[in-house]
Amino acid sequence: KELVLALYDYQEKSPREVTMKKGDILTLLNSTNKDWWKVEVADRQGFVPAAYVKKL
């Protein structure tokens, strides 16, 4: 499975999103959308801005 690194803190703004902290390592589930990537963090799945994460 592919992992991404959170480059910035992100606070979810809708139930479809997830909160992450800078430095978090997240499991990447889907990166087909260039703006929003689906990730899993702490047993929750949701979207984060693609610009806020980097593939490892």
Rank of each mutant, 00 (worst) to 15 (best):
K1F: 14
L29A: 03
V18R: 02
L3W: 14
A50Y: 03
E2A: 12
E12F: 06
L28S: 01
K22D: 02
K1N: 10
T27P: 15
L28F: 04
K54P: 01
Q45E: 11
I25A: 03
D35M: 14
V48N: 01
K55G: 05
P49K: 04
I25S: 03
D35Y: 15
A50F: 03
E2T: 14
R16G: 14
K38T: 08
A51G: 12
A50Q: 07
A42K: 14
K34Y: 09
G23D: 06
V41M: 14
K38C: 14
T27S: 10
W36H: 03
L5M: 14
V41G: 14
L28N: 00
Y10E: 01
K1W: 13
K55T: 08
E40N: 06
G46R: 02
T19H: 05
L29V: 13
V48G: 01
L5K: 08
R44G: 06
L26I: 08
A50L: 02
K1P: 13
K38P: 01
A51P: 09
E12H: 09
A42Q: 13
E12D: 05
D35W: 15
K21F: 12
K34R: 12
D9L: 03
E12S: 15
P49W: 04
A6Q: 01
I25C: 07
K34E: 10
G23E: 02
K13E: 08
A42M: 14
T32W: 10
K55I: 14
V18S: 02
I25G: 00
T19Q: 05
L26N: 00
E40L: 09
R16Y: 13
D43V: 08
T27E: 12
Q45H: 10
Q45I: 13
N30F: 07
L56Q: 05
D9S: 09
L28V: 06
L56N: 03
S31I: 06
L29M: 08
G23F: 05
A50W: 02
N33A: 09
L56I: 14
W36P: 01
L56H: 06
L26H: 03
N30T: 08
W37K: 01
V18M: 13
D43Y: 11
F47R: 03
K22V: 07
V53I: 08
N33C: 11
Q11W: 13
E17F: 07
K54R: 14
Y10P: 01
L56S: 04
Y8I: 09
Y52N: 05
L5C: 10
K34S: 12
V48I: 09
V39T: 01
I25V: 11
E2S: 12
G23H: 05
W37T: 03
V18P: 01
L26Q: 01
L29Q: 04
Y8E: 10
N33L: 10
D35P: 02
V41F: 13
V4K: 00
K38N: 07
E40F: 07
K55R: 15
Q11N: 13
V53Y: 02
L3G: 03
Y10K: 00
V4R: 02
K55Y: 10
D9A: 07
D43G: 15
G23V: 02
V41D: 13
V53K: 00
K55H: 09
R44A: 06
A6H: 00
L56D: 03
R16D: 13
D24A: 08
W37P: 00
V4D: 00
I25W: 05
L29N: 03
G23C: 09
V39D: 00
N33S: 11
P49I: 04
